[in-house]
């Protein structure tokens, strides 16, 4: 096991982790504002096709990433109108968003099936990005660095800015926030749109970087892993980053174990691992008596002001 081997394995883990990390950051902010959006998978698919389509049309992957963010945000706003204006059930509406996003992306993708774009890889000079050792730091798509940058930025926003404090207040007690004059709906619209944009960018990591093409349902369930990740992280940004890489390592371990002829666990068990670990983490949090200490108190509840 030389350095080459470990570096190649790390690169695989980063590839597996980045999309769920991006979608997880977005969903964490949405949930912190008191909204549960189960439509992550649908928003990722919408982002994947939007990003791919814009890249094909403009030839510019940067524009593609922006397109993915806009596509994901637009899809999430549909959800926002339903749950914020019409007070529809968030769980049911979120599931509907996943179904809608899957269908919409298939429809939009009809004329893009079978086409390819150049993969959106490292923008560093080849002396860094193709160096056998240094590529472990410089050899990634800009989206990877963006995801890593968004972790501290979002954590700082939530913890240390006024806007972040308002967002958390809305998520903890919407009626109080409302009574002192904050617009609960406006804050939640913004949070949901941010969540959609991040899921969209996570989705375009599939269609622009991992497999630069469009195929129906190409995210293959990663949106659900991102949802589990937020719970696993206990709504903490640092733990979200660690959890995303933990899940990524688990997914890579499954493949390495199989390819090496290791068979001590059935493969279905590996596939279920992220969910099992989430349940374990939840039980652990509960057993410490701080159950849901970090879960936003208004999570999933409709906002019904008396006035």
């Amino acid at each position: 096991m030389g350095a080459d081997f470990i570096i190649a394995a790390i690169i695989t883990v980063v590839g597996l982790t980045t999309p769920i990390l991006l979608a997880g950051i977005g969903e964490l902010v949405v949930e912190k504002s008191g909204v549960l959006n189960l439509g992550v998978e649908g928003m990722m698919l919408t982002g994947a096709i939007s990003g791919f389509a814009v890249t094909v049309i403009t030839g510019n992957p940067w524009a593609g990433v922006i397109g993915a963010a806009i596509g994901g945000a637009l899809a999430s706003l549909l959800f926002a109108v339903l749950v914020l204006q019409l007070n529809s059930n968030q769980v049911a509406t979120g599931l509907a968003l996943t179904i809608f996003g899957t269908g919409l992306s298939s429809l939009l993708g009809l004329s893009f099936t079978g086409r390819i774009v150049a993969p959106f890889l490292s923008v560093f000079p080849a002396s860094l990005s193709a160096d056998p050792i240094l590529k472990v730091i410089f050899g990634y798509s800009p989206i990877v660095y963006f995801a890593l940058l968004m972790v501290p930025l979002t954590a700082w926003f939530l913890k240390s800015t006024r806007a972040g404090l308002i967002l958390r207040a809305v998520g903890e007690n919407d009626l109080s926030a409302h009574s002192i004059g904050y617009s609960v709906r406006r804050v939640r619209y913004a949070a949901i749109a941010f969540g959609g944009a991040m899921a969209g960018i996570g989705g375009c990591y599939f269609s622009l970087v991992i497999t630069p093409m469009w195929a129906e349902k190409m995210t293959a369930g990663r949106g659900w892993i991102a949802l589990a990740l937020v719970v696993f992280a206990g709504w903490r940004m640092g733990r979200l980053l660690a959890g995303a890489y933990f899940f990524g390592i688990l997914m890579a371990l499954e493949l390495y174990a199989k390819a090496s002829g290791f068979s001590f666990l059935p493969s279905q068990f590996w596939a279920a691992m992220p969910y099992i670990m989430t349940v374990v983490a939840l039980s652990f949090i509960s057993s410490r008596g701080t159950a849901g200490a970090n879960a936003p108190a208004c999570l999933g509840k409709p906002f019904l002001p008396s006035t």
């Binding site: 590839g15 990663r222 493969s267």
Partner: peptide
């Protein structure tokens, strides 16, 4: 021949990661 079963007929990200793994091995 190194064989990896991915437990799906269609999962592009997993297929890509499994290919990277096989190449690395």
């Amino acid at each position: 021949v190194k064989l990896v079963m991915i437990d799906s007929w269609f999962d592009p990200p997993k297929e890509a990661a499994a290919t990277e793994t096989l190449i690395n091995l």
